[in-house]
Every structure is written in C-alpha cells, then in structure tokens.
Design a protein around this nucleic acid. Structure first.
Lengths: 372, 372
DNA sequence: ATCTGATCAGGCAGCGCTGTCAATTCTCTG
DNA sequence: CAGAGAATTGACAGCGCTGCCTGATCAGAT
C-alpha cells in the first residue's frame, strides 16, 4: 500500500511546494518559479485576482458568478482586484468545467454564394447575430453545401464546439444525414425554412405562406389579369408547392403554365421568363416564388421591349431588399425573415436552458407596389 | 537514485498527514461519497477509448495526435477502439490544454445590414469561411458597428475565444480603441480595407487601387469624355482619396466636381447623382468609388430620362456582383475581394503558427463593360 | 461560558485532454 | 548473458475554472 503510493507521494511534493510558493509570492513579488512552467502562462488568471485581493480563488469565483455568501467587504475587495488586474475569465476553462460554450452555430445549408445572392440568408445571419450578441452568446458560422462540408459540420458539433444549432436550409434535400445527427445528439436545434419531408423531433420556425399567397392571387384576379403563369424554384418540395397552391386558390382559376427553376436566383428568373415568353402562352401576369426570380423576370420582360406591369404584371415573394430596387418596384408577399431569425434564436436559447424548443409559424402578408 | 528518493520522503510526511486527515473525514462521513463524478459525464471520452483498447489514455492521445513511439499493433488497437466507440475529442478540453481554440473571429466593423447592402462584405465572409474551413478552423462571426458592440468584441477576444482576428472595416474611423486592444494583445490580427491613418503593428491586406483607377481615368479620356465628376464615399479617408487621385491622374485633367456621400449604398449613389444633375455642372461622365454608388447613380440618370452611357457615362469600383446586374452593365475596377479574404486567412493562420503576419497589397484592374 | 445556527471563506476534486518523464520491455551488442 | 541503449507505454500534473464540502467566525440564545 505504502509502496503503491510512493509514486504519488513524489508528485505531491511539487504540488505542496507550489502552493507554498504561490503564497509567498502573493506577499512579496519575489521570484516566480512555478514548478514547471511548461507552457507559458496565458494571462491574468483567477489566481492572480485572488492573490491581489488576498482571498482564495473559490471566493473570487463566487463573486464573479454572483453566488451568495460573500460579504460585501470581500466582494468589493475582489471587484477592486478584478479592476486592477484587468481580469477576464478564460472562456475555454469555463467552457470545459461548465460543459457549455455559450456559442451557437449557424449552419447555412447552401453554398456560401447564397449569402449575397439571396438577401434572405444575409438577413437571417444579421438578425441571428444581433440576437445572439444581445444574449451574450457568440455565433459560429458554418456552411453545409455538400457532403464534405456536412461532415465538417458534423464533427464540429460532435466536438462540442457549440451549445445549439440554427440550421438555415433551402428547400433542397440532402441534409437528412445531418438532420439525423442533430436529432440524435441531445443538442438543441432549430431549423427554419420549409417543413420537413418526414416528421422530426426538431423545432422548426417557418412562415405561413398561404395567407399572403392567397391574397396575392385575389389581387391578381381583382386587377383583372386573365392569363397567369408561375415561376417556381424547387417545384417538387412542400413549401414552394404550398405557395403555388394558395396563390391558385386566391386566383380562382387555373394557371396557364408553371415554369420550374433550379434555384432562387436572378439569372434563373430571367431564363424562366424568357422561356415563358418564347412559348407564347399569351400570358399577362406572372407570380414568381421569390423576389430574385421576379427581378430576373422583370429584366427579361423589359429586354423584349415590353412593359411591367402594363404588358405583363409580375409579383414576387419575400419582400426582400431587392423588392424596392427593381423598376418598377415589386408587388410581393412579405415574409418576416427578421422575425424568423429572432424566433430561432429565442427557441434555441430556451432549449439550451432546458425548455423544449417548439415549432412556430409566422404570418405573411401581401405588399402591393407597382409591378402588379 | 535512492538519495534522490530521500528528498521525497521528507515531504512524504506532510502528504501522509494530509492523507490521514482525508481518511479521517471519510470515516466521519461513514462512507466514500465522492468517487462518482458530480456532473453527468458528457459523452465518450478518451478514457473510454483507452479502456476499450486496453491501453492508457496517454497512448490514445499519442495515437490521435500522430505522435511517435507507438507500435503499429497498439495504434491499430486504438484506432479500432475509436471507431467502435465513435469517439470525437472534446474541443473544449483540448482548447484549454492547448491554449488554442482553432477558431478565428471575423469582425465586421459595420452594421450587419452592410452584409447584404455591400456584396463585398458577403463575399469576404464567404471566402474567409471557406478558407478557414479548409484549414479546419471555425469562424466566429461578430459585428462591431457601435461602441457597445466593440466592447462586446473586446471582451470576447480577451476571454480567449479565438486564436486570431480578421477585421473587416469600412473606411470610417471609430475603431481605434478596438485596434489598440487588438494591437496590445499579442493576438494575431489581420485587417483588410483602407490603410491605417497612423502606422500600426497590425498586418493589413489591401488592394493597390491606383493602377485600376488610373487605367479607368485613361479610359475616360480615350472615350473622349470632357466633363467628369466623381461620387466618393468617406472622402476624408486615405483609400477613397487615393482612388480619386489615381483616377484624376489617368484622366489627365481636373474634375468638374466631387460629390461626397456618407456610405457605400445604392441610395446614397442615387441621391449624389441627383444632386450632381441638379447642380447643372454639364457633366458627361461620372466615376463612383463603388459599384453600389454607381448603380444608384445609373438609376438616378435614367429616372430623368437620360441614357447611360450616351448622355452620361458612369463607372464604378469593386466589380462586385451588382456590376453585371445593372442596365447597362458597369464599367468598373476589379478588386480581388476573394483573394483578399484568402490572403487574410493565410496570414492570420501563419501568425497563429508563429510567423509574423505581413502586410500585402493585391492588384486591381480595369473592367470595361457598357456603362462607360 | 457554552451551544447553535447562520454566514462566510478556503480547500480541493475534477471537467477531458496533452506533455513530460519515469518505468518497462525489447534489441542489440561485446 | 549482462549491460547499454532504443522503443514503447504508463502515470500524472496541470490548463483555469466551478461546485461541493468543510472549517472558521460571529451573533444570539441558553
């Protein structure tokens, strides 16, 4: 038994020596020969503050974390020492012991180019960043456009870098494996965008597109448009389909044509409109399922010398920044993207604190401008 | 050897005393109530892997970090155990012991709205994100538009959340306190954008705007434009001033007028152009120091029923995504923003690894499209 | 004067990992 | 076949912090 302990005893020595030494150096700033400064010391630690204040590190910790049972006098001494030393608690040590990093990942499930192609993404990033900062959390930004990136995201999350995840995904599928992982870890996740193909235990913040789209359909009918087409990206997925259905419902008659596109981009909108015009459907109005598509469509119409809305009326969806920059300004359906981002943050923070995150649906509304 | 141990034995006394003491209190408690961890264990740890592989945690660590002195057989055993347990090293523990987080902050020194207002910012974010991911680093996204946010950034950095900082700032001043902090901490920082007002020990990645702007000036002269004005944001700062100077040099004659704006936005460009037109300078050509300003200027010109470039030629600066989306497409000066972001990441990573980050300058070139 | 309970402060284990060093085993030599 | 050296592994301190537990202190009550 004693033999067994021998090894430990040896090390205990240096430890005792260290404590002894620290106490001394607190009294007089003599030599500072730590037993083995293997790595350079990083900065002011809680121990330094404790030395200056003449208390133990436990007390400093108690003051910093606003725990009870610290006398006002001691508290003041510690605060003063913190001020004097310029101490900031080491986030890494804190993260280790607290099992919490105070940061949240924002995973963009698309190529990063989407960030300036689609103002919605930038807006979500902006609002999420702001909301997290307000809650004193930091934002880790990741993209997950392809499998390699998804792997990276997965290992990032498994490594415990973040307390929760905000997942912003376009309607494309391909994220199922990542969603599976997120679902399987007990890590709070909030997704925004389109409803899931299959039910999931992941909270979803999405917009109720139907009312706005239906109102837009009624607006088209009221304006007296006779032959209407739609340009729709990701036509196979649930969200876009719902938009078109609600629009058609409001319109009260069948669509002349439905032109699909691969993504939400201005170029795709241009191309789709061009092919609609080429097909000579004799349309007088078009609903594009995003403002970017609509902006492209407007360009295509004007490139042929036609006028919007007189020759062809065009409406978009999103009410993003581009909606007021087109000529004419876009009639569109307002989607509360900022509110979505804020709700995502609120839900994920709640989930981190233990309350289950809940799925929420936010309303949309028709914004009539000049293009339709 | 035995002599050496003797010294230890001396200290062994105090240790034994301590042990005795502990034992006593354990007896008083009647039971050993503390072998179990107090917090729930978080997941698979290196200890679990070691147990499965039948080796010590040190050996597992050595295998994972690809250190020498591990026999092939043991290595295989450990790898197998890692596979079987699905172990991923805890990033937080690693960060603490390594004094390194493997993440880098991207600080946007502007309101987050800039992100979709100015494509440059989004592009930098995109490229930095990509480059960091490729280097297996994560990106913490922060904004520092006002003092409150700068304080947040400062304490974030002091807390040791990141190993380095990428600072993306518009020409505005107001960041001096933050730059002071960054400079004072021995933390690698790379800034992009305009040269510093005062010399700093911070690496800077910026573009050499002069060649492109001068070429643009020559192009204006070659086109036969007679009366040229400029629209310039942040006219007091070094970068914009250099652009205008180089442009004027290429032009070979004085500017008719210099219209200042507060920021780089389409709206400001519109307003500046409108006021230029109102002032009846009889100009036939305008150089705006960013594509966004130029895009706004084009709108303003066309809103008055004038044609670009026939009535008034307009050129921009940046060659951002918007340059090809205006009608007509913008003649502009290409700024290698993606390359800037990549250089920033390269420099900051080098600096983290000990090499001093160096200031770099990247070239610009004239892109002639239709607007001038 | 002693006991009791409420406060307050200190001590220390331990979060999960890495780096150092000692211990152990294996391989050659002379 | 001992002894030196090389290869391999184990042990454990410690990164900086928090949380539990214990000890000390001080009123107020007995």
């Amino acid at each position: 038994m004693a033999q067994n302990r021998l090894g430990s005893n040896f090390h205990q020595v240096s430890r005792d020596a260290r404590v002894h030494h620290t106490d001394r150096s607190a009294m007089a700033d003599q030599e500072y020969s730590r037993p083995r400064p293997r790595r350079r010391r990083e900065g002011i630690t809680i121990q330094d503050v404790a030395n200056v204040a003449g208390v133990s590190i436990g007390t400093v910790s108690r003051v910093l974390n606003d725990r009870n049972w610290v006398s006002p006098a001691t508290r003041e001494k510690v605060m003063e020492a913190v001020r004097k030393t310029g101490f900031t608690a080491n986030a890494r040590a804190r993260a280790l012991v607290m099992q919490r990093t105070n940061s949240v990942a924002l995973v963009l499930g698309a190529a990063p180019t989407a960030l300036f192609e689609d103002p919605n993404y930038a807006l979500i990033l902006q609002e999420a960043s702001r909301a997290l900062a307000a809650a004193n959390r930091s934002l880790a930004f990741l993209t997950a456009a392809d499998d390699a990136e998804r792997d990276r995201v997965a290992s990032f999350i498994r490594a415990g870098h973040v307390d929760g995840v905000l997942f912003v995904s376009p309607a494309e599928s391909g994220h199922d494996s990542l969603l599976d992982l997120l679902e399987s870890r007990a890590l709070p996740v909030v997704v925004c965008g389109n409803p899931f193909a299959e039910p999931r235990r992941i909270a979803l913040i999405h917009t109720d597109d139907a009312p706005g789209c239906e109102a837009l359909g009624r607006h088209f009918r009221d304006q007296g448009y006779q032959r209407t087409a739609v340009i729709v990206a990701y036509p196979g997925t649930l969200g876009p389909r719902q938009r078109v259905e609600a629009f058609t419902r409001g319109l009260g008659r069948d669509l002349v044509h439905c032109e699909p596109t691969a993504r939400y981009s201005q170029e795709e909108g241009y191309a789709a409109m061009a092919s609609l015009l080429d097909a000579e459907h004799e349309i007088d109005s078009v609903f594009a399922t995003s403002d970017l598509l609509a902006a492209g469509a407007i360009e295509a119409v004007r490139a042929r010398g036609l006028e919007v809305p007189d020759d062809i009326a065009i409406a978009g969806f999103d009410d993003s920044a581009i909606a007021t920059r087109t000529t004419p300004a876009l009639t569109t359906v307002h989607q509360p993207v900022a509110a979505v981002a804020q709700a995502m943050v609120r839900e994920v923070l709640q989930a981190i604190d233990g309350t289950e995150a809940t799925t929420r649906m936010l309303p949309t509304e028709l914004i009539v401008r000049e293009s339709a």
